[in-house]
Design a protein around this nucleic acid. Structure first.
Length: 522
RNA sequence: GGCGCUAUCGUCUAGGGGUUAGGACGGAAGAUUCUCAAUCUUCAAACCCGGGUUCGAUUCCCGGUAGCGCUACCA
């Protein structure tokens, strides 16, 4: 007989990471899908740390998970720690044992190897233990002999375990294909399967949305839940996120691109990153790609989830892999604005060609959609951290000039650098020479500019008129006029539009830089 | 080895018994502005293979192949 579940009408979903590593992009997506489902349905989002593996849990991992979630800006309503709920787990194990649906296995634990799962075929149980009489079992346990508690999987009469997955549909598996999995380890600690089921039942989880790697585990979970008298919740398994080579994402193999904090440190907008992750294995089924959080909540449904694994299309670069760990971890330290060292480091740590191009595009897209004030506020800390003492007022004036020119927030450092420094870093004077011109022409242009700019108001329109008129006066094309000036004030050919730039830079800086440029031409 | 899941452009995906198989990223070409970017236009690019069902399969069914997952006293 089964006890009917809590009568709560609102869905209750959970994200249950085990703190054995940094927050992984796949885990982040699982969190997001759960969160979207909860918000979409008015349900409750629960964060549960599945930390029953004391050997492998680390505080650093817990920190990384919270850090990552904090950055994503998605909240949860309830929080639990599995390690504090041991009594509940043991209670469930006890109940299952009492019903005769589990048995003690006194076979010593296997050490490390997994040769059992090799060519020998399916291992189902350790000989002799399943059949042990309850009396003998109790006696040995009372004598202090160590044992693992195993589930007595029903195998007689061709029994079948089944459940319906919201994504993968009807699932069934013969009991004859399920091994007698452990519930309790010989040290008394619950296994993942037991703890997870006990907590899901106790917390009245209504929908379990998790990675597809648990799809076959679900048969065991259904077994546990039913043995303990609960009706299994709704399951929805998510296709896995894989690397371009098709293998699962791992930090060891693929480097920091699989860690959420890497995206934060590289200058992704959390809303863009969430948007990107949502499009991996889920579709709104219309042609939208750029979506706000609100739009995602409104469009999200379990039916929109795909069944095939999705590739996170990052570039596997040895250089990036070798260098990113150091730079990603030390990204909070200041970046030296100029100099060869900074240039080299910038080049090597530039993640631009490492990340999935679509993630990059979405980020740029979200940046472009931000209000100037908003973007400016997000940019300022990055600029300050890099050692530039820029005021919020100046940042607000710079922001519109770069909004369409940055992909990652950190690009502000390379795109707007000339606004930040007092002295321009050295540049090649040959850059000053315009199309179809020579050094003499460049000099002539710059000298004319100096003269004209000294007496013009530094606003877009007056600058526009004055410089165009000047070009005509000395008989050069507008482009030929503008380029030397641009290089003189920006230190390079590619930069934001000239008049706006000059306006923000101001007369004093502009004239000083042009003056310096004329000296270079001599 | 056993069991399970999956298969549409390079990638993310839409679609579905009859379609010019749609969109997005990326790529290419062009337009445009003072450069760059943004924007706009255009182009190239896909239904894993073999059977079956059917008047007709990329779509449904079966088989194969490939990939992935599980097969721990990890989660």
């Amino acid at each position: 007989m089964t006890v009917s579940r809590s009568s709560s009408v609102r869905p209750r979903v959970r994200f249950a990471p085990s703190p054995t590593g940094f927050l992984h992009v796949g885990s982040a997506r699982t969190f997001i899908f759960n969160w979207l489902y909860a918000r979409r349905t008015g349900g409750t989002m629960i964060l549960r740390l599945d930390d029953t593996d004391v050997e492998r849990n680390t505080d650093a991992s817990v920190t990384s998970i919270f850090e990552g979630l904090k950055w994503l800006g998605l909240s949860w309503d309830e929080e639990y720690k599995q390690s504090e709920r041991g009594a509940l787990h043991r209670q469930m194990a006890e109940a299952i044992l009492e019903k005769g649906l589990a048995y003690r296995d006194f076979t010593p634990a296997h050490t490390g190897d997994s040769e059992r799962s090799g060519a020998q075929g399916t291992w189902l149980f350790n000989p002799g233990m399943r059949e042990l009489s309850r009396e003998a079992s109790d006696r040995r346990a009372a004598a202090g002999e160590l044992f693992a508690l195993r589930f007595r999987v029903p195998r007689d009469g061709g029994q079948v375990v089944r459940f319906t997955d919201a994504v993968y549909g009807e699932q069934m598996k013969a009991g004859a294909d399920i091994e007698d999995f452990a519930l309790l380890r010989s040290d008394g600690m619950p296994t993942y399967h037991l703890a997870s089921c006990a907590d899901d039942a106790d917390l009245c989880i209504s929908h379990i949305i998790r990675g597809q790697d648990h799809l076959t585990n679900t048969f065991k979970h259904v077994l546990i839940l039913e043995a303990a008298g609960y009706t299994p919740p709704q399951f929805a398994h998510l296709p896995l996120l894989v690397a371009p080579d098709g293998t699962k994402l791992s930090k060891r193999r693929h480097g920091p691109v699989v860690s959420v904090t890497t995206y934060r440190d590289a200058g992704f907008l959390p809303e863009a990153f969430i948007n990107f992750l949502c499009l991996l294995g889920w579709s709104p089924k219309d042609d939208r790609t750029k979506m706000s959080q609100q739009e995602l909540i409104e469009a999200f449904s379990l039916e929109g989830i795909n069944r095939a694994n999705a590739v996170v299309n990052f570039k596997e670069s040895d250089v990036g892999r070798a260098l990113l760990p150091a730079t990603a971890e030390s990204s909070t330290s200041s970046v030296i604005p100029n100099g060869r060292e900074a240039a080299v480091r910038n080049l090597l740590s530039t993640p631009e060609d490492t990340f999935d191009p679509k993630a990059l595009w979405l980020n740029a897209e979200h940046i472009r959609g931000l209000a100037i004030e908003d973007l400016s506020q997000r940019l300022l800390p990055i600029v300050r951290e890099a050692g530039f003492n820029i005021t919020p007022e100046k940042m607000v004036r710079i922001t519109p000039l770069i909004r369409e020119r940055i992909t990652l927030l950190r690009d502000v450092l390379t795109v707007a650098d000339f606004f930040f420094v007092e002295q321009l870093p050295p540049y090649d004077p040959a850059e000053l020479i315009p199309q179809k011109g020579d050094a003499a022409l460049a000099l002539k242009v710059l000298q004319k500019a100096q003269a004209v700019l000294a007496n013009v108001e530094f606003k877009h329109d007056p600058l526009d008129q004055a410089l165009r008129a000047a070009a005509q006066e000395i008989g050069v094309k507008a482009g030929q006029m503008f380029q030397p000036i641009r290089v003189a004030v920006c230190g390079r050919k590619n930069a934001p539009p000239l008049f706006e730039t000059l306006e923000v830079l101001g007369k004093e800086t502009t004239l000083a830089r042009i003056n310096l440029a004329t000296q270079k031409l001599h």
